[in-house]
């Protein structure tokens, strides 16, 4: 790999480093200050339910080297939000027993508050991880939609549940992603689901996959159209915006639409979505070239 331009920031996939308020939230959690955590989560919930879900995921992945956070969660398990937080950590970091305990806790939360998008989102994650039948994932997504009709992270997980390993098909996933994009308003990060799905289907072809198979003109034109609609209005989700731009930047870059890809890298600045970015680590050299060009170009403007 050639040396990086020192003036270009390294890709940053940690949302708590990208967004200051998420950094503060995580710092409070690591200090075991649950009162401050709950207060900030409420602020985020009031702003946007999807951002609340993303914030809970950041806390779910937060390191807890001295067990301060874990102890605080146990001590305050009479609080429903704390139980959701603990369940999110159980799903993310726990073993199979912890995941079952987490699901039971989420079943309870969904019963107490059927309109809780984050609890339903986490139940979708639980369905995906337990490889429950696609029908059950769809049911949970229906409940999530009833609580928050434009919960794009939830739709992302649903699309994962519909993949062939869950008994579905890539055609079915693409249909669902296309439909989501077609029905989404301009600016919605749902437009990126099409790019995410093509990328996932391509990666699923294994190490022998050919980059040429990504460069089918009709497909890439569809992605470009989706990207145009995404850019046509401000994204309603402050955090979902990162994943959407990363999907477009990576897919269009790999497909040879370097100018389009650069536009998304430029919008991202230092940020990338960690999951998407790491999934294409074999192609980082090429993508970093585009990114450096884009960021350098951005500085010149």
């Amino acid at each position: 790999m050639r040396p990086m331009d020192a003036s270009v920031p390294a890709p940053q996939g940690d949302l708590a480093e990208i967004f200051p308020e998420l950094g503060v939230l995580r710092a409070h959690a690591r200090d075991g200050d649950l009162e401050a955590v709950l207060e900030l989560l409420e602020v985020l919930r009031a702003r946007d339910v999807v951002d609340h879900t993303v914030a809970v995921l950041v806390l779910a992945r937060a390191e807890d080297p001295d067990g301060t956070l874990g102890q605080a969660l146990e001590e305050h398990d009479d609080d429903p939000t704390v139980r959701v937080l603990a369940a999110a950590r159980g799903l993310t970091l726990g073993d199979s027993t912890a995941r079952v305990t987490a699901e039971a806790s989420l079943v309870r939360r969904c019963a107490e508050d059927p309109g809780n998008p984050t609890a339903w989102y986490l139940r979708l994650v639980a369905a995906r991880d337990a490889r429950l039948p696609a029908g059950e994932a769809l049911r949970r997504h229906d409940r999530l939609q009833a609580a928050a009709s434009d919960h794009v992270p939830g739709r992302r997980v649903l699309l994962e549940c519909l993949r062939p390993r869950g008994g579905g098909s890539w055609e079915g996933v693409l249909d669902a992603a296309t439909s989501a994009s077609e029905h989404a308003p301009d600016g919605s990060d749902a437009h990126a689901l099409l790019a995410a799905t093509y990328l996932a289907a391509w990666l699923a072809q294994g190490p022998d996959r050919s980059i040429a198979s990504l460069r089918v003109p009709g497909v890439i034109d569809d992605i470009e159209r989706a990207a145009t609609r995404f850019a046509a209005a401000p994204c309603p989700s402050r955090y979902g915006w990162v994943a959407a731009h990363t999907d477009f930047a990576v897919l269009l870059g790999l497909a040879g639409r370097r100018a389009s890809s650069a536009g998304h890298f430029r919008a991202l600045g230092a940020a990338v979505d960690a999951r998407t970015w790491s999934s294409v680590h074999e192609h980082h050299a090429d993508l970093l070239t585009i990114r450096e060009f884009a960021l350098a170009e951005g500085r010149r403007r």
């Binding site: 019963a111 029908g135 059950e136």
Partner: peptide
């Protein structure tokens, strides 16, 4: 037929509602 998993999941949620809500 074809909706069996959904029925099982929905039953669990309905039972939970009577326990918790």
């Amino acid at each position: 037929p074809g909706r069996r998993a959904e029925a099982v999941g929905e039953l669990v949620d309905q039972l939970a509602r009577l326990r918790w809500a």
